[in-house]
């Protein structure tokens, strides 16, 4: 029962910490914390979606950044044509990334294991190069967005603190939605396909369809993250969809601990904050960060969350 209470306590702690961030920023007068917090939460949304695929379905997608990019470009391109309202941009961002997930998922899910990793990379790269060729929208250099999206005509996102809580609301909604998906009948079948796809198929489930649905869900959430990212930075560029970015997202969720939605958020925060903190010491921070990742992989099976779990058992004896 203790484990169950902890299962509720940890997310409460995480979201309380996020909610308190702007207050800390106001107290210390350091407004940078707010924009850093926004960045962490936006990537946490994308990481939750990726963890849904990788952690619960063993579908290692190496092209997840494409969905972030699609969501971001939806905002950028609409804004370039004078359509700056979130009520239009958000549904478009979600629909575009969902459709891309559906179209590519149909092809990708024919393959398994490493071949799946590489074919998702292939589609990610195609999206990347397509974005770089969009000469009217900045091409390689990217596209500056004139202002953050309006909401029904009101500049709700304009203030950093207000936007922080908007993003927090989206993160909470995504987290709860992912938990609901994992716990549902759909989620049980999907998780079953990770353990033994043949067995699920003989039980009469069309595993392919379940995986495709999960892939589309993850794509839509990735699009949401991109919509928010474009608003946060007021800029979109092909770099948002580079394979390095997809790789970083994977590292974030493995770092936090796969197959635990809390782990996805913790891993993202740990990755981005460590990056920020270490780069404050020395420009050669990667010399420290690299070996740290090696240590996590060798010793901390199950990432930060797994490590914490084993420490707890050790203390209890």
């Amino acid at each position: 029962m203790a484990g169950r209470a902890a299962g509720r306590l940890l997310p409460l702690l995480i979201f309380a910490a996020f909610a308190a961030t702007p207050l800390v920023a106001a107290a210390t007068g350091d407004s940078f914390i707010v924009s850093l917090g926004i960045r962490v939460m936006i990537f946490a949304i994308a990481a939750l979606a990726l963890d849904l695929l990788v952690g619960y379905g063993a579908l290692v997608s190496f092209g997840h950044a494409a969905f972030i990019g699609l969501g971001a470009y939806a905002v950028g391109i609409l804004s370039a044509h004078g359509i700056a309202d979130a009520l239009v941009a958000l549904p478009v961002a979600l629909a575009v990334s969902g459709l891309f997930a559906l179209a590519t998922g149909i092809v990708c899910l024919r393959t398994k294991g490493v071949y799946f990793i590489m074919i998702t990379l292939a589609f990610g790269q195609m999206a990347f190069f397509t974005a770089s060729s969009l000469a009217p929208y900045g091409g390689d250099d990217g596209l500056t967005i004139r202002a953050r999206s309006l909401v029904a005509g009101f500049p709700l996102f304009a203030d950093d603190r207000a936007f922080f809580y908007v993003v927090l609301g989206f993160l909470l909604a995504t987290y709860l939605a992912c938990r609901a998906v994992v716990a549902s009948r759909f989620g049980r079948v999907f998780r079953g396909s990770r353990e033994n796809a043949v067995r699920m198929a003989t039980l009469g489930f069309n595993v392919y369809r379940f995986q495709l649905a999960a892939y589309v869900i993850a794509g839509v959430i990735g699009g949401l993250s991109g919509f928010l990212l474009a608003n946060a930075t007021e800029f979109v560029s092909p770099a948002y969809m580079s394979w390095q970015r997809s790789g970083e997202l994977l590292i974030m969720i493995i770092f936090g601990g796969l197959g635990s939605l809390d782990g996805a958020i913790i891993g993202t925060a740990a990755f981005l904050l460590l990056e920020q903190w270490l780069s404050g010491f020395t420009e050669h921070w990667k010399v420290i960060f690299g070996p740290l990742l090696v240590l996590v992989a060798v010793f901390a099976r199950g990432g930060i969350v797994g490590l914490a779990g084993r420490l707890k058992e050790l203390i209890r004896g």
Binding site: V114, G290, L293, V296, A297, V298
Partner: peptide, 18 residues
């Protein structure tokens, strides 16, 4: 496989900077 990915990615960061 994913443990291998994170460890060898760490080696990349280290050596590129090294």
């Amino acid at each position: 496989h994913l443990d291998q990915v994170i460890a060898t990615f760490g080696v990349i960061l280290f050596l590129n900077q090294g």
